[in-house]
Every structure is written in C-alpha cells, then in structure tokens.
Design a protein around this nucleic acid. Sequence first.
DNA 1: GTAGGGTTAG
Length: 641
Amino acid sequence: MLKKITFFFSHSKQVFPFISTHSYTRQLTSSSYPPNPPSLNTLISSGNLNYALLEMALQGCEMGFRDYDTILNECVSKRAFREGQRVHAHMIKTNYQSPVYLRTRLIVFYTKCERLEDARRVLDEMPERNVVSWTAMISGYSKRGYDSQALNLFVQMLRSGTAPNTFTFATVLTSCTGAFGFDHGSQIHSLIVKCLFESHIYVGSSLLDMYAKAGKIHESRGVFEGLPERDVVSCTAIISGYAQLGLDEEALGLFRRLQREGMTYNYVTYASVLTALSGLAAFEHGRQVHNYVLRYEVPSYVVLQNSLIDMYSKCGNLTYSRRIFDTMSERTVISWNAMLVGYSKHGKGRKVFELFELMKEENKVRPDSITLLAVLSGCSHGGLENRGLEIFDEMMGRIDGVEPTIEHYGCIVDLLGRAGQVEKALEFIKQMPFEPTVAIWGSLLGACRVHLNVDIGEFVGTQLLEIEPENAGNYVILSNLYAAAGKWEDVQRIREMMKEKAVIKEPGRSWTELDQTLHTFYASDRTHPRKEEVFGKVRDLSARFKEAGYVPDLSCVLYDLDEEQKERILLGHSEKLALAFGLINTPEGKPIRVMKNLRICIDCHNFAKFVSMVYEREVSLRDKSRFHHIIRGVCSCGDYW
DNA sequence: GTAGGGTTAG
C-alpha cells in the first residue's frame, strides 16, 4: 500500500510566521524618600514581603480583608511557604473571622506550596464552603496526581449539595485515569450533559482527553467534533490522543486538516506531532519540524528538545540526538532518559553506561525509575551483565534510591537469560516479590530458544500458553525452540494448539521512507502499485542469497503447508518486501532503513544480514522494541531480541 | 479565590 504523507510544512510563510522577540528594558527611576512611611499594601505590592511581615508584627497590626488578600496573593505567587504560614497564624491569633474567599486563598496557597494536608485542614475547618473552595482543593489533589482523593472529594462535594461548575468538571476529569478512569469519566460525562456543559471548551477538551487516555478514540473524536468552537488546547488534545495511541497517520492527517482550517498551535502541538513522526520514523518530516522549532524558542524549549532527541533516536540517527543533548542549556530527567533509552534500543550498552556515569557525576538531576530501566536494559543488551547486576543491587539497597518495580526485575531476568544463565534466571523469577508477568515469561522463553534449553523452555512455554493462550507470538517462539531441537512432533502439537486458540492480533507491516513518502507493505502485499517489481526482486534476492549460504528458516511458518508453500509465505514477509523496495530505489552503498510494527522474525533477520553482506549495505531495521543495525552480516542485537 | 493539551518506558 502506498501512503503518502503530504509535505505539510511546505507553506512555511503562512504556517509558521517568523517570530521575533522584542526585548525592552524599562528604566526604573528612583524617587526621593517618601514623605510618609509606606503603607502595608505598598510594601507588599513592592514585593518586600519580609519587610511587610515585620511591619505587621511590629504594629500588632489590625489587619483587614484587603491586607490579608494582598499579602496572601503575594505569598501564592512567590510560593513563599514560611511567610504565608505566618500570615495564617496571624489570622488565627487575632481571631480574625476569615470569609470563604480568604480561606479559599489559603487552600490555593497551601496546594501551590505542595502542602496538601494543610490545605485540606483549611477546607475541613471552614464553617461554610462554596464551589470555588471545593474546586481549589480538588485541583490541588489532581495536579499532584492524587486522583482518588480528588474523585472522593468531588463525590463529597456533590453529596453536600454544591453544584459543580465548569472549573470543577474540567479539573476532576484530569483525575479520571488508570484502570477505573473510563468508568468514572463516563459517569461524570453524564453529569456534564445534565448541567449543559458539554459544549464548554475547557470541559470539552478535558473530556475528550479523558476518553483518548482511556483508549476510546471514537468517543474522544465525537466530543471534539461536537465542540462549537476550537482552540489550540482542544486541537492539540485530540492530535495527541491519536499519537499516544500509536495512531500516527491519523494524528498527522488530522493535524494537516486542522492546519488547513486555520488552527493555532504551540510547543505542545509540536511535541505531539513529533510523537507521531517518531512512531513512523519519518526522519525527513521530523527534521522539518526541528527547523521550525529552532525558530520557536519558548521557555518550554526543553520539552521540545526532549521530543527531538527521541524523534531522531527513533528515526535511527543517534548522532543528531546526542548533538541536541550536548547543546542543551538545561536538562530534565526526561532528557537523560530519552538519550539513555536511545542508546539502549540501539544496542549501545557501553554508551548507556558512560552516560549514566556522567549523569551521576553531574548530580543535577536524580535518576528515576525509567532511567534505571534504560540502564539495566542497556547493560543487558550491551553484554555488561555484571554492571547491570551491580546497579540492581545498589538500587535495592538504598533508601533514597528508586523503588524496583516488576519491570526492573524483568530486566534482570532478561539480562541473565541473555548471558545464557537460564537456570539462574528461573530461580530469580521464583524469588521475586511479584507474580511473573507474560513479559517476564516471554523474555525467558526467548532466552531458552537462543540457548537451546528445551526443558526450561517447555516449562516456561506452558506457563505462558496458559496465561495468554490467545497470543500467537508465544506459539511461534515455542515452536521455533522445538524445531531448533529437532522435536518435530512437538512442533506439530504446538501448531495444532495455535490453530485452535490463537488470535493473530495485528497484521505485520513494514515501511520505508523514500523522498518524504512512506511506502508501507503488508505481508504478501498485493496493494502496492509496484508490487510485481518488488516480489520479483525478493525472489531474485532469495536465489542469490542461497548461493551465498542462505537457508530459509521454515520453522517461522506455523501453517500446515508443504515446504514450497512455506517458503512462499516467508518471502512475502513485509520486512523482505520493504528491504527489496529499498534496494531497488536507493543508490549503491546507501544505508537502507526499514521499520516494522511487530518483532522481526528470525528468517527476515537472517535475510537482512545477507542484504548487508552481498550488497555491502548497512541495514537498519527498527522493530517493535529495538533497532537492528546490520553491517557486513553482523547485527547490533547480537542475534537476541 | 477554582479550569483543559505535552516530552522518556510499557
């Protein structure tokens, strides 16, 4: 199938008007000494909080509503916790009867200073509350990620008979995430409809985002299309909804449509567009976005740089990623993680380790759970088993360190399995404080296949088929293992089981970029306009490679067919079609880049090695989880993935 | 006095 992404940044002048930054300095003229001592409000608004507080104390001040209001406002904007606390104490000491308005300010003050318990105490002690005080507290919980507290408080608010307003709904919907997000969110949606707020732009964008995050993209789109007006946030929310679900082409298509319709965008929109481009590995398009972003320096520039690091890495160009990383004036933990993950997925274990050391040395940003995942997986794939184990032990032993999750344990299973220590990996699984997941069994099964451990492989495979009988991939790996061990009866048995139970979820799809167009191929594709030419090329390649020693791995086909038919199926694999297409259309010596939506099969991996040897081409193949850089028949993955 | 979208992994 031919999918062309139109060159959607071609009208740069209208689309991205040049943004000039004006800076001007305002000379503050110093006035003569004031004839009268400054009033409390003047002191506060001049920003001299401490002086204001001192005045307050010295005068044993009779503070009024306006004084408290102004000073608390100042404390909120400066996040001045100690000072605000003193103001609160002053209110209590002088027995000031705060109105709802000021108590709400106190709630906001405490939530902004991340003192949720203090904020809640203020709310709980209020003699009367209104919708704003409830919403301020709900918002405090939501922003800090205390979703269940936010939802509980929302329910309490409803029970108290206070009607939510648009602020409340827009806020509380952001806490509808995770396992029950959709249940809560759709109930709240009903309330919104009843209150006639469905068309409200803030409520609507929060609502469509809730649906998108729950994976209900049709509902999300429905809300979006029903909005009477659109703005940058609602447009970005729907685009990012598609992108985050991996519906990259849809995200870009919608972006183009909205762009034609005159949508405005900002750095968040760019970040979402980059996510979609990364998914497609659309290098040239990504580079264009980079060009525009360079002119779009905003305070959140670091977010965009993080997206760019990731985009270049997912497009196979780590050099560009590192260049951005090195020139950043400020780095967040995400910047480090994006770079570390990049090295790790490209199989560059030593680079991962070096960068991690640099991160610790710089000591500006604390490693988090994702950092450790990247480092452990990098060590595992880069042959640095001992380093990986050391880091894991260190992590377990430290109080201030990262709490190990099941994923971290999974990395260690992978690391041991990859190093050939299959028994040790099994022991490790048995001692974990977690129930093993399908990912963990799957990783060990892969190790059993590579290291030909049929006994453990059988045990692991059986566990896996029980937990996840519908996943066709598990049958394939187990069958590969039996085939490699020459146990043909078992291969037959697995094939029968698969026919009975397995569901092939997603069809294999590969694509390659040529002249800013993505050419997509499905297995045994009959839709691409140049299919005859491509199939012919694959057949030629196969014949040529056989002379050089290529033997088709028929164990990758689980259908009950004769050998000739099996070979025909193998030759129709989408990766081979995309590789052949790349060979036809690119000049000699140019690296070939192919992307695949699933994991690459053993036979195609081997086929790609022959492409690299016979044609002396570098082949870069990105599958679902990692890169395979193949040079002269040797793959960066070390034949283990 | 209260509000919506974003970047790393899976």
